[in-house]
Design a protein around this nucleic acid. Structure first.
Lengths: 374, 374
DNA sequence: ATCGTTTCCGAAACCGGTTTCGGCAAGGGT
DNA sequence: ACCCTTGCCGAAACCGGTTTCGGAAACGAT
């Protein structure tokens, strides 16, 4: 049987504008080469039973003709749709709003680098989130999932584990050492925050934690406590609060602390939003931030740089987080063992105007070297 | 040939947890019914040559067995991947950062209501955006695209038009009356802003526009000018600025205006971020916002409610926008004519503390009825 | 020269659906 | 009673790839 070598092979030029109907399929490539499509397929997928000569010949022709396999066509056989899933749970306190775009940028970049795309969905409640996961798994809309904002005893983990579908955690969670994860060392950051304040002479240091349902809360609280211990400071239970993730929630907590008999000279917040709430409380009390009261936040939201005085905080690189998370997930999808798919990164301390020497006390103003262990 | 009616048909229960390998395919359904898969397929897809009795019988069995067609399996034949594409261009001035999550929520909701998913990608430059579109089109990653932040003479439109792929604009653009679109009536909002300020006695009203490359800029400028004309006020060219989309850019523009011989008593900004820049400029000049200087923004960013005084602005419902956009796009994908796929919605004026009576002038304090025509 | 091994590719089945085509049986008209 | 629709479903091709299987040719060893 003689196959015509001519045919749909006139105008090759890779950087042409995409035109509908002009799609070149694998049989076009095989016909142009006088091979069968099975050979072309195996050549392109680096099967060992294809000689190096024909492999390069096939590759060259495929490139020349601008052939690109249809991912959903291969998916039907391979079972891989080449897509990463992300379910964003909205509602609760604006969630990751300020970072979402850069986070997505990182995820998208990491995904497309490996030929994957990003499939996202949103939900309004925890139940809706789980339902969304179920339907996405059932319909195989993604080969794996990224789980942002991990919680202690996260129901998503149980669901995905039972379904036996790959996923990666953004944030470590206790008792899940065998899962791929990426995390920012928030505990070390809180530790560093205490060191910084202690070096400035502060002794009454308060801590306003974030949502206790999130896995980061115990980690950051632990970092704070370790920092206090290492600095030789005693922890006043009245100067510790929880579940403050909005401005209002933190303002209320700070109001109580600042009205206490032994008010703090510095407040560390687990999230920047809470720090902004402390600003409001301080203003109401007539306290000057950075002078009468030092404040440290965490997250690095843009607003922090615009308030007065600018907020000292720990910047988290969400772009990089997304990049690493998608990479870890893809490697997990490809079969790598979860061990070795766990990474951490440090938050970067940004010393700005909201931290200063403790009032009414001589500081050992040594500038200080603030290192973060762990 | 006798097909066993037993087999993979033991545990049907729809709300079970998804288990790998337990997928029920169309042949399972047809076997259970003693039909062929072609009949089942046509029954499920409402082909006219299937009797109503068997159609309901098939539907019932499919539901009972929890059958869900694999979208990428049907895609290979139908050419539809049941996915909406969104390319987010980052970089320039944080872009739609504050609204991204709610916008995505709307898109996702509208998409999933019709069985579609959302495939997103990000890019850093206009060229990268176009390249991303090309590759997504080439690989058919989506059946259509949503174009946020349309620009005057938008290169994405030419690209998508040439590729003959469905898309919908967020924001109208001149000379594209035959394209599906959704838009917020920003011109009417600016008009209403002028009316509001005029009613408060202001006569020197400035206008700080956003990025002139965006299609909203001429629209809003036009609304402002019409408002001034309708209010019988003359426009001072020195009190009009452009391309202010960040706090810093707007601060610079406001600095110039407030130092001019005939300074404005009110400033209307095309975007909230610019309004926040005006706040900074006013503070530097010692002007009290809402008293010495009135300010109106547009967008309804959350920060606007927290500044002092709270910013009067026009709130845009981005959730609803996403909802409508995905609906319009899906209908366009399904073949509806672009005419009839064009919607607009009004921005809602939020009168807050940043607007007050004009200083040094008797106001006709009639509270005013602020309607928006067009 | 003979007989296994490799090396390398073609043929065909397969993945999970959709769509075209053709034919059988029931219904309708004369 | 006969023919012609019409309704309804089965058979098979098809979509664009991947993967298994088998065999021909080249190679190597005896």
């Amino acid at each position: 049987m003689i196959r015509g070598g001519i045919g749909a092979s006139m105008n090759f030029d890779g950087k042409d504008m995409p035109r509908k109907g002009a799609r070149v399929k694998i049989s076009d490539v095989s016909d142009a080469l006088g091979l069968t499509k099975s050979t072309v397929s195996r050549a392109l997928n680096h099967y060992p039973d294809i000689s190096e000569t024909t492999r390069t010949r096939v590759q060259a022709m495929a490139d020349k003709m601008g052939y690109r396999p249809l991912s959903h066509a291969q998916a039907i056989r391979t079972g891989l749709v080449k897509s990463l899933g992300l379910v964003i749970q909205m509602g609760d306190h604006d969630a990751q709003r300020p970072f979402l775009s850069t986070f997505l940028a990182g995820l998208s970049e990491g995904a497309s680098a490996e030929g994957f795309t990003l499939t996202i969905a949103t939900s309004n409640s925890e139940q809706a989130t789980l339902d969304t996961f179920k339907s996405m798994i059932r319909d195989h809309k993604a080969d794996g999932f990224i789980l942002p904002r991990t919680m202690v005893d996260d129901p998503r983990i149980a669901l995905l584990r039972a379904a036996d579908v790959p996923f990666v955690l953004f944030g470590r969670v206790a008792g899940a050492a065998d899962l791929p994860s990426y995390d920012i060392k928030g505990g070390a950051a809180m530790h560093e925050a205490v060191q910084h304040l202690a070096a400035l002479g502060h002794r009454q240091i308060a801590f306003i934690n974030g949502g206790t349902q999130y896995s980061y809360a115990p980690t950051r609280a632990d970092g704070f406590l370790r920092g206090m211990r290492d600095a030789g400071l005693s922890v006043n239970p009245a100067l510790m609060a929880q579940d403050a993730v909005t401005i209002d929630q933190a303002r209320v907590a700070a109001d109580v602390m600042l009205a206490a008999p032994n008010p703090p000279t510095a407040i560390i917040c687990a999230v920047d939003m809470a720090a902004l709430g402390v600003y409001e409380s301080a203003a109401a009390c007539g306290l000057e931030i950075g002078d009468d009261l030092s404040v440290i936040g965490y997250d690095g939201i843009p607003e922090g740089a615009h308030v007065s005085p600018p907020l000292s905080t720990f910047a988290v690189d969400f772009k990089h987080a997304g990049l690493r998370l998608s990479n870890l997930l893809i490697r997990n999808i490809r079969g790598e063992k979860p061990t070795g798919l766990q990474e951490t990164a440090a938050a970067q301390f940004l010393r700005r105007g909201s931290t200063g020497p403790a009032p009414h006390s001589q500081t050992n103003s040594k500038g200080g070297n603030y290192e973060s262990e762990l």
